[in-house]
Amino acid sequence: MKVNIDIDNKYEETSVTIQAKEWTEDLEEIVKVIKKRKQQRLFGIDSDQTVLLDPHEIDFIYAEKRKIFATLKDRHFEIKMKLYEVEEFLIHHGFMRFSKSVIGNLNRIERFELSFNGNLCVYFQSGNKEYITKKYVTPIKDELIKGGQ
């Protein structure tokens, strides 16, 4: 892959041109990174305090009773965002969808166990566990095989 960068005052704004023979997954990843907005911060609410959450410490995010929660070790923080917004924010931090209501951190997984119904039980480094539904097992397996980011 060849990269050309031309910095000059004559340009009003930054533009990116990609020239390729065909569309590939690598190009898709490059485009996602380029389009990524400036990272906003992820805040969690616990009792009366608001806490800045480090995505690398979050095991998983889940929806319950129309609220969104982040799980870190033995604590749960409410997040005032929609689940799909959190997913978009965290996708660049190694998170993937585990089920309709759960997004998990692939980088915090310690081990898996196959459930009798075809789902996977995921154990995190913190001791927490969550389930990956059948629909999401193959994409997660593929992501783990290719090494994540």
Rank of each mutant, 00 (worst) to 15 (best):
T24G: 10
E25C: 02
L27Y: 10
E28C: 09
E29V: 12
E29D: 15
I30S: 14
V31G: 07
V31W: 01
V33P: 00
I34D: 06
K35N: 15
K36A: 14
Q40M: 03
R41P: 00
L42H: 01
F43M: 13
F43T: 08
G44S: 04
D46Q: 13
D48C: 08
D48S: 12
D48Q: 13
Q49G: 06
Q49I: 10
V51R: 07
L52P: 00
D54V: 08
H56W: 04
E57D: 13
I58W: 04
F60D: 04
Y62N: 02
R66K: 15
K67F: 13
I68K: 04
I68D: 04
F69C: 05
K73A: 11
D74Y: 01
R75G: 01
H76D: 07
E78F: 04
I79G: 05
I79W: 00
I79V: 10
I79R: 05
K80S: 13
K80C: 07
K80N: 14
K82M: 13
Y84G: 03
V86M: 00
V86W: 00
E88F: 00
L90S: 04
H92Q: 09
H93T: 02
F98T: 02
F98L: 07
F98W: 01
S99N: 02
V102T: 08
G104N: 02
L106A: 00
L106W: 00
N107A: 09
R108Y: 03
R111V: 08
R111K: 15
R111W: 11
R111T: 15
F112C: 10
L114M: 15
S115N: 14
S115H: 12
N117K: 11
N117W: 09
N119F: 09
F124E: 07
S126E: 07
G127P: 07
G127W: 06
K129Y: 11
K129H: 15
K129G: 07
E130V: 00
Y131Q: 07
Y131D: 06
T133R: 06
T133G: 03
K135Y: 10
Y136I: 03
Y136P: 07
V137Y: 03
T138H: 10
P139K: 08
